[in-house]
């Protein structure tokens, strides 16, 4: 009985969370008048497939490409720097480790909107604003690095130290042991965190908005905000745009969710 109640609660909350998503897709298919119809329709009788039109009209190819470039760049930088940092923070235990971790967490507290002005000034002086996508990539990487380090570190903590020592005795160098034993065992954590970082960066708004002035280099989130003007009426356009933007992300997430299942280190000990 209790199980069914819990299941019902779970289903209801999933429905509440997923409803906006559903509404987005449905609205994307509705015509302008149908959107404001009361009572609302839950499935449009005459769906309009204007994805192609919105895609071309709003030069989404360029926007999505820029978002992708930035997200890939941020993920690459974060994984390269963050994995090493997370590993050191997991293995070395002393006073300074705690200090470093605390500092890392403190950085997470600072919101982008607060950081963006000083970053703008600094980047401007360094001439980084000439390559605005690089500027956004760096700023965003610095922001998400903390999250990556904290999550990855806990993954590394779960890999028993003896495994690394066994690898050293078996003939590995420290670096060899890291890449051949530790990283494969922590790969789920690394992968999941990288995906999170990627998705976050794909949806980044504040830095792109402020650091990129040229429209051809602008990202998809900023492109979406251009729909919002003094008089908003193109709800269908907004929802179509959003659907195009979000669907690939959803697909990636669904494909990878099975990886999130853990249990890779089972059987190592005892």
């Amino acid at each position: 009985m209790k199980r069914y109640i819990l299941l019902a609660v779970a289903l209801v909350s999933v429905a509440v969370y997923l409803f906006p998503l559903y509404w987005m897709y449905v609205t994307a298919l509705k015509s302008g008048t149908e959107i404001f119809q009361y009572p609302p329709t839950f499935w449009p009788p005459h769906p309009q497939w204007n994805f192609r039109q919105v895609f071309l009209q709003h030069s989404m190819a360029s926007y999505l490409w820029n978002s992708l470039v930035i997200a890939v760049g941020v993920t690459a930088i974060t994984v390269v720097i963050g994995t090493g940092a997370a590993y050191s923070l997991a293995r070395i235990r002393n006073r300074w480790t705690s200090v470093a971790l605390f500092t890392v967490l403190m950085l997470q507290v600072l919101p982008s909107s607060l950081m963006v002005t000083p970053l703008f000034v600094a980047f401007n002086q360094m001439g980084l604003l000439a390559t605005p996508r690089l500027a956004v990539t760096l700023a965003q990487a610095a922001k998400v690095l903390t999250l990556y380090i904290v999550i990855c570190r806990s993954t590394f903590l779960q890999v028993p130290r003896e495994l690394e020592e066994a690898a050293l005795v078996d003939g590995n160098s420290r670096i060899g042991a890291f890449f051949r034993i530790i990283v494969p065992l922590a790969r789920n954590g690394i992968l999941v965190t990288s995906v999170l970082i990627f998705l976050q960066s794909f949806g980044e708004f504040v830095y792109s908005r402020s650091l990129i002035s040229e429209k051809s280099l602008q990202t998809a989130t900023v492109g979406l905000s251009e729909f919002v003007g003094p008089q908003i009426n193109d709800w269908n356009g907004i929802m179509t745009y959003s659907a195009i933007y979000i669907t690939p992300i959803l697909i990636v997430f669904v494909l990878l969710q099975r990886r999130i299942v853990s249990g890779l280190t089972a059987g190592a000990l005892k």
């Binding site: 495994l163 050293l168 065992l185 190592a268 005892k270």
Partner: peptide, 17 residues
């Protein structure tokens, strides 16, 4: 360790999972 030509059996076995 890799230059010492020693093999070790750990208390926890430490098998590569």
């Amino acid at each position: 360790p890799r230059e010492r030509d020693v093999a070790m059996v750990f208390q926890s076995y430490a098998l590569y999972p």
